[in-house]
Every structure is written in structure tokens, then in C-alpha cells.
Amino acid sequence: MYYYIFRQIVGLEDYSRNTMTKHTTKEQDDPLIEVHKLTKTYWNGDIPIRAVRGVNLTIKEGDFIALMGPSGSGKSTFMNLLAFLDAPSSGRYIFSGSDIKDFDDDYLAELRNAVIGFVFQQFHLLPRTSALDNVALPMLYAGIRKRRAREHAYEMLKKVGLEDRIYHKPNELSGGQQQRVSIARALINEPKVIFCDEPTGNLDSKTSIEIMDILKKLHKEGKTLIMVTHEPHIAKYASRTIYMKDGSISQS
């Protein structure tokens, strides 16, 4: 229920489920994400750890970004900020034309639910829960009834080629299948951006290719994807690669 209320608060009411795709194709070049001097500083006791140091970046709708960099470069922290998993210490974040200023927990949760999809390296599927219910979960948090959420979840699983595995529990699925379930879950609320954190990190090379082919297909359909990876051959699937070093973008 709060899904709709949220859209009014944020000023995203234009992006109802039906009009979103049209919108995406029509204004392909509009910036979806704009950040200005975005910083994130952690405090380890009295010692500040400046994980992100004033990053400026613009990501257009329909982009497929690969975010690369050595460990400790701040790429994960930066992705968390972009994905509304964490609040920045300073700077501006304009998402789809709205200046995001309010970073309280509930507001961020609503944003993540409505406009973000996640694909994690470790899949993060609920144990002892069917693929169908795993995929339906974000839709339940959007306040949609279980039956309708399951119908949507079935469509999503069909899209990733798992329509014959909908009642399988995660432990009955292969790694590749589990990752496909999590892609289906990322897609169910028709997000504006899909964040992929090392999506092939736990998969063998053959399965990695399968997963990357699905992501490539999503990109072709007009989805915006932001992928953190440290493997150059995976980064090649992206339309644009951004390198980070010491909390700043070194090359893009």
C-alpha cells in the first residue's frame, strides 16, 4: 500500500508500473542518477575512514555500468549509497529528477523496494522458502496481496527460464539457478535500476556466461544496471566501465 503513497511523496507518481517502460524508451538520454560531491565517512573510534570522497557521477537511463576497482577502493560503499542501502555523509543525490534529502530508515526502505532491484554474489535467498515465494517477497513488502504477488513472481521466473522450478527450495537449486531466482526477485517490482554485486562471484565460468547473458538481455530491454565486479571479462558485458580508487573515480 505504501508503494503508492511513497511515489507521491518522492514525486515519482509519473512512474506507475504501466507507463514506466514507455518513459524509459522515450527519454533514453535523461540522467537517471546524478551525484555531486557525494561522500561517506565511517568512524572507527576517533579515526575517520573516508570510504567515498566527493564523487561526481551521472548515470543515464538504460546504462549498463561496471564499477571496478581494487578492494578498499570504496566501490562497494559507493554502490550502497547509490542503492539507498546507506545514507551519504554529504553531497547531493538526484534520483530520476528528485533530490533525495530525507535519508531516514523507512524512507530508504521504501525507495529500495520501489525503484531498486538487487542481485547479490551470495544470492541471499530465504532458506526453506520456494523460488516462487522468494521472488514474491519484495512485492509483499510493497503491500501487494500474496496471490497477485505470486502470479507476478511466476511471470518473472518464466522470464529467467525457471518456470519448472517454482516450488523448489534454494537448497534444491544449483548456483546458477539460485542466481536466476534472485534476478527474478530483482525484477518483480519493475525497478528503475538493478544493482549487481559481483553477480558471478560464486559461479563457475559456464554458469557465469549464462547469468551475464540474462543481464545483457535485460540491458537490451532498456533496463539500467549497475554492476560491481573485479573480473575484467565480466565488466566487458557493460556499456560503460567506471574505475574507483581510494574513494574517488579514477577513470570512466
Binding site: D106, A109, F118, H124, L126, P127
Partner: peptide
């Protein structure tokens, strides 16, 4: 803990 993290990532509020 991981399950809680995942639920929050996909949109669970604190109250939920």
C-alpha cells in the same frame, strides 16, 4: 542476520 539484511534490502521497514 543475513535474512534480516535481505528483507531490508528488498524493502522491509524496521516496523515490518
Amino acid at each position: 542476520t543475513k535474512e534480516i539484511g535481505l528483507r531490508k534490502a528488498v524493502g522491509a521497514k524496521n516496523s515490518s
